[in-house]
């Protein structure tokens, strides 16, 4: 099972819109909140109120500054979690089979009861998507909220990842990227969604939508003065303006 299921029936994943993400961190704490009481061991925090607070998070939002080839620098907020790769190296390196990719939907999971906490999968992941929990001694990672998306105890509209549900700007989209007709697939096609570090051949399922072109002057021609103010003075301007009513 730690071999990859060559093909999966579905390819569930996230599409993250970098043009819309304001970097509010809501997805970060929503993820922490759900998974702290959900799948597997809680996400522990060490030295929570001390000098070096450090805990397990399955989703972190970076903030980058991009200097375009011309024009003003831009800030791009960049959420980072497991991309549920097709060719997931984190799975094949795992000696215990704890790390696996589900054949039905492609979700990459850690079976915590089999995990020996060797950390090799985290080494194999290019995207820093895996964090060893210091308390539990097992590897934690984004579960794509597998305990939400099929959960019959939740109303249908809530059967989506916690981070997607909470995202105030709607920058996070969840769906089947294996189905070219799904909303997420169409979005990816329309907006030129891309892979992270494609050169590493992990074939991520999650896609990122690039920021739209910024500071592009709308080509509106400038406003033409009604008439030559100096010449006609305020009175002339008034007649002309009010003549328009």
């Amino acid at each position: 099972m730690t071999c990859l299921p060559g093909h999966t029936e579905k390819r569930l994943g996230l599409v993250i819109d970098l043009d819309t993400c304001v970097g509010c961190q809501a997805c970060v704490t929503a993820c922490k909140g759900w998974n702290d009481q959900g799948y597997g061991a809680p996400l522990s925090d060490q030295d929570a109120y001390g000098a070096e607070p450090s805990g397990t998070f399955l989703n972190r939002v970076h903030s980058y500054e991009v200097q375009p080839f011309e024009g003003a620098a831009q800030v791009v907020n960049f959420p980072r979690s497991c991309l549920h790769c097709e060719d997931a190296p984190c799975v094949t390196v795992c000696p215990t089979g704890a790390s696996y990719k589900r054949h039905e939907d492609g979700i990459v999971l850690v079976n915590e009861s089999a995990c020996i906490g060797c950390g090799l999968c985290a080494w194999a992941c290019p995207y820093g998507a895996r964090e060893m929990d210091a308390d539990a001694g097992v590897m934690k990672k984004c579960t794509l909220c597998v305990d939400r998306i099929y959960n019959e105890n939740l109303p249908t509209e809530d059967r989506e990842p916690a981070c997607v549900r909470t995202c105030p700007t709607g920058a996070r989209h969840f769906g089947d990227l294996g189905d070219p007709t799904s909303e997420v697939s169409l979005l990816v096609a329309a907006r030129g969604g891309y892979d992270l570090m494609p050169d590493l051949k992990t074939r991520p399922t999650n896609k990122y939508l690039p920021p739209r072109k910024k500071d592009a002057r709308t080509d509106a021609s400038l406003l033409a003065p009604l008439l030559d103010l100096q010449a006609v003075g305020l009175a002339g301007w008034l007649d002309r303006v009010l003549g328009k009513i």
């Binding site: 099972m1 299921p5 999971l109």
Partner: peptide
């Protein structure tokens, strides 16, 4: 290869 993968409770009480 035959599909053997751990069972996951996908509908835990919330």
């Amino acid at each position: 290869m035959t599909i053997r993968q751990p069972y996951v409770e996908t509908s835990p009480p919330v």
